[in-house]
Amino acid sequence: MTIRVVVADDQELVRSGFAMILDAQPDIEVVAEAGDGARAVEAVREHAPDVALLDVRMPLMDGIDACRAISAGTACRTVMLTTFDSDAYVYEALHAGASGFLLKDVRRDDLVHAVRVVARGDSLVAPSVARRLIAEYTRRPAPPPSDRLDVLTGRERETLLLLARGLSNAEIAGALVVSEHTVKTHVGNVLAKLGLRDRVQAVICAYETGLVTAGAPPDGGAGRGAPPPRG
């Protein structure tokens, strides 16, 4: 299946470069380019791509607002690109619905990989960005108790906790002593019940609802191979 992509950046050479790299892949087709956020939103609505690459800083409408409009009104998934390794942009982009966040110095292979990962429904954040995001959340005071997670079963809460700790499906399966297929089912249920688009938003939700708090051990207090305590 061909992955259809819209590339948006106000710098023509940068935009064309990304488009050329992606178009050279046998499974990726760049269906449109845009020089500002407003035209990016129009292109997504017109061409119904699978993924939109959005520069954060663009005229008329910046990448964050374009991401918010695309996430709210279409099934297209977004990857944000910027030269600015700034926490503020990361938080805004992820809350706007972005499924990926990469710096513009990303390697060619990593750019292609990111598009493929996001297109299949997963999320991807540059390692340096992910480390800063998690560090920022763990520095914050614990949020007040929230009943948002009450819709989850005990096992789904455990799955969300391990997601927030950065474990892969295989690692979660090992911790909960279940199959990877069962983990995928739990992850899907968590996303559906909480109205989340992907694993990145699930991690944010876990921190914002207090399921994960500053100072908690990386495995939630449970040893590897045993499930964490129920919340």
Rank of each mutant, 00 (worst) to 15 (best):
V5K: 07
V5D: 00
E12R: 07
G17Q: 01
I21M: 07
L22I: 04
D23Y: 13
G37L: 05
A38C: 09
A38G: 09
V41P: 02
V44E: 03
V44A: 00
R45C: 14
E46R: 10
A48V: 11
D50F: 11
A52H: 04
L54D: 00
R57E: 11
M58W: 05
M58G: 05
M58E: 06
D62T: 03
G63A: 12
A69C: 08
S71V: 12
S71I: 08
A75R: 10
R77G: 04
V79I: 10
E92T: 05
L94D: 01
A98E: 02
L102I: 05
V106S: 05
V112T: 02
V112W: 02
H113K: 12
A114D: 09
R116N: 07
V117E: 13
G121V: 09
S123C: 15
V129W: 01
R132G: 14
A135C: 10
P141K: 15
P144W: 08
S146L: 09
S146T: 03
D147M: 12
R148H: 12
R148C: 01
L149Q: 00
D150G: 09
D150Q: 12
V151P: 08
T153R: 03
R157L: 15
L167K: 07
L167G: 03
E180A: 13
H181C: 07
V203R: 00
I204R: 03
T209Q: 09
A214H: 10
A222T: 10
G223M: 04
P227C: 10
G231C: 08
